Amino acid sequence: MSSKTNPVTNFLAGGVGGACTVIVGHPFDTVKVRLQTMPKPKPGEVVPFKGTFDCFRQTVAKEGFFALYKGMAAPLIGVSPLFAVYFAGCSVGRWLQQTHPGQEMTFLQNFNAGALAGVFTTIIMVPGERIKCLLQVQQNAAPGTPNKYAGPMDVARQLYKEGGIRSIYRGTGATLLRDIPASGAYLSTYEYLKKALAPAGSDGTQLSPMRVLFAGGIAGIANWSVCIPADVLKSRLQTAPEGKYPDGIRGVFREIIREEGPRALFKGFVPVMLRAFPANAACFFGFEMAMEGFKMLGL
């Protein structure tokens, strides 16, 4: 079995890549969620944040630098196994499409493998995303209002009390809508760039750290270019009060189009793109370094 189709080594290396992603990208994610869930001001009210950099500035000024890392425990616990499952799922997707061992995947085959992995990751991702978003936006409450949640475990406890396991997994359909195409674009773009950037005459597996970082960063941009409207819908749905959207993502979509227009589906675009390159460059760099380590150990 080749390293690309070995689910065990891909699982372990994916966990390393996921941890790198969270550490580098979480501040941008906090800003993105706060912008996406920012309520539309009523006549005479001032908009809470004028834009991406104003949100950064206000968050740090009012709450301190480490406020940008609020809610990081949930994705750090969830994202490492999430990326582990993702890369293991990619290896399974490649294996299912192979007609002989060591077969090189086409762009479409890599897309299919990534899309399949996106399905696998949903069961891990949804609770962590719901908890993360609620912690990130609770500072948007009226001044003097005490925080509803004390931390990730308190969020999970309260959600379960309010609506059971269905409340914890609210946004599953929206997450699938976001992640199936985005995960396909993620893997296929990275693998394409790996081959395109490889030195002439090489087999495409030996890349310098800078080339890995570049290919991973562009793959991250491709991923988010595909999925940001669905991500806006997911964030709104997962942070809404219980029962606000009885018909789920369709109700969120109708409300956004009716009250804010189509441009609102791209709220958070700037912080997403600012985050996409460094966070995903770090992810693939961590993944590739871990895979190289496994090769040195003969795994």
Rank of each mutant, 00 (worst) to 15 (best):
V85R: 06
V270G: 04
A196F: 01
P246F: 01
L134F: 13
R258H: 04
A222T: 12
K132E: 07
F214Q: 13
K194N: 05
G173E: 11
I124S: 07
A279V: 02
T21C: 08
P181C: 13
R236M: 10
L197E: 01
G102D: 02
A222D: 00
A200M: 08
T239Q: 13
V8C: 09
R211E: 09
Q206Y: 08
A84F: 01
M273W: 11
A290Y: 05
A88M: 11
L187V: 15
L265V: 05
G163W: 13
G201S: 07
D247P: 06
P181W: 06
G184M: 10
F83A: 08
V8Q: 11
V272I: 07
E242G: 02
S208M: 08
T52S: 12
V79P: 00
R130A: 09
E259T: 13
L187Y: 12
D154V: 04
L12D: 00
V232D: 02
I168C: 12
A13K: 08
E104A: 15
V252G: 00
S208Q: 12
R236G: 06
F214Y: 15
R236E: 12
A230H: 00
L177V: 07
G243W: 11
A117I: 12
S3G: 06
K132R: 07
V126E: 02
M38T: 01
A74S: 13
A113R: 03
P199G: 09
V137M: 01
S188A: 14
E255D: 14
A196L: 09
Y190H: 13
I131N: 05
L135A: 00
A219T: 00
R211W: 02
V60R: 00
G171I: 01
G151S: 06
Q138N: 05
G298Y: 12
Q136E: 14
L96S: 12
M1D: 03
N140H: 12
F277L: 06
I131L: 02
F11R: 10
P27S: 11
F28I: 08
L237F: 07
P27K: 13
R236Y: 13
V22D: 00
M125F: 14
D154P: 09
I221H: 05
A142W: 11
A13L: 07
Y169S: 00
F28S: 10
G243P: 12
A219R: 00
E255I: 04
M38V: 01
L35Y: 08
P278T: 03
R263M: 14
C227V: 06
